[in-house]
Design a protein around this nucleic acid. Sequence first.
DNA 1: GGATGTGAATGCATTCACAGCA
DNA 2: TGCTGTGAATGCATTCACATCC
Lengths: 231, 231
Amino acid sequence: MEQPRPELIPIPAVRRLSLYLRQLEAFKRKDRRTISSKQLGESLGLTDAQVRKDLAYFGQFGHPGIGYRVEELIAQVRHILGTDKTWNVLLVGAGNLGRALLAYKGFEAKGFALAAVFDNDPSKFGKKIGQYTIQPLSELSDTISKQLIRLAILAVPADVAQDVADQLVEAGIRGLLNFAPVSLTVPADVALNAVDLAVQLEQISFQVSLASLGRSPAASSSSPTPADDGR
Amino acid sequence: MEQPRPELIPIPAVRRLSLYLRQLEAFKRKDRRTISSKQLGESLGLTDAQVRKDLAYFGQFGHPGIGYRVEELIAQVRHILGTDKTWNVLLVGAGNLGRALLAYKGFEAKGFALAAVFDNDPSKFGKKIGQYTIQPLSELSDTISKQLIRLAILAVPADVAQDVADQLVEAGIRGLLNFAPVSLTVPADVALNAVDLAVQLEQISFQVSLASLGRSPAASSSSPTPADDGR
DNA sequence: GGATGTGAATGCATTCACAGCA
DNA sequence: TGCTGTGAATGCATTCACATCC
């Protein structure tokens, strides 16, 4: 009955929650009505116990003997993640990456709506990208309060990223997704996640180097294995 | 003296290694010659003990009383990650995201070189993007063996991602960075990392929801805190 | 003094294994 | 029987604290 104290929820469990949601939506598209922890786990390369434990951190969603009802669990997970309502998201940086993110249509279905685009290059001010007009950073506070924006995506060059982040926080942004290859400093009450392409490639480089070297004499093992995901 | 067995290296330590490298390169640009575990840790929001333990998994790189010599440690970490040599990387998917990745110039400096671009849309075959000519997937094996490519970036729509991944593996790719929002299945000896934009935003949504709700009466805490990074 | 490298202690996260419900 | 939810047991990762070296 009691909601579990958020403090004791493992961060990895929250990350997996997003993956469960993605799988559940895929199962729903295939008209699956219910799913067991075993099946959901297998689709992600996880054990059934892991799936049950993760979900149990947030409440009791399953039905003994049945499993989880797909549609019901989707609604629950969306509610937990906060994506049952739509978030307005602001983008800073109208370079290549920024424009690609703008063009990506997958957001809306996931509960995020691009609401405004900013850049610090005066030559871009007023120009339109699709439906969006590029605004100068000086209009940040205004736009944020008028459109109730709380989340921002940062797709600016590394050398200005901290400066822009500071302005965003100052203007009231509560969560930040950083694509610039630098480590940002923000107040403790501002959520921060980072995606660094080079870091991702380096992780793969490490794994491949390791495999081609060591991996024991039986290096030619290639069982048609389950799925691993971004870590 | 002995190289530590790779099996007992924590995966989180490898992830942080990439972040250490990024910081070290930044310190080098500022002409720092040496750095202590404390300073390196602080720049990333980690403890000194964590930094020392992580680095010690891979060897003895420090100098008691001095710290780590920046340039020396950069070379060591690059060697560990396998980025002291350049990797040829292939891109599949010449859509918005793919083109943005192509345009991103940060790769070379990090040890990765875009070597070829593929798509499965016949109307794109032969077209040029920058210096790259878009090739059909049927030429995968050929190009991979001729240019010695082992890594691939997948920036295709979700519904064809698994199919393309299978072809890449079949053609000899050893590591895969997946941007499609699906969970891929690959053989155990193929390295796989995934970046899903929606998942990243959901994590932030969760954190922000949590903060605005609970976070104890003292919710107005905003100490100008250290850096958190992609998790 | 100022720093590393590292066993030992702690703290988290995962897995096990089973009671209980449909 | 089939499956969940969950304490208890295990296994990893982080932190502590100190011997050691410049």
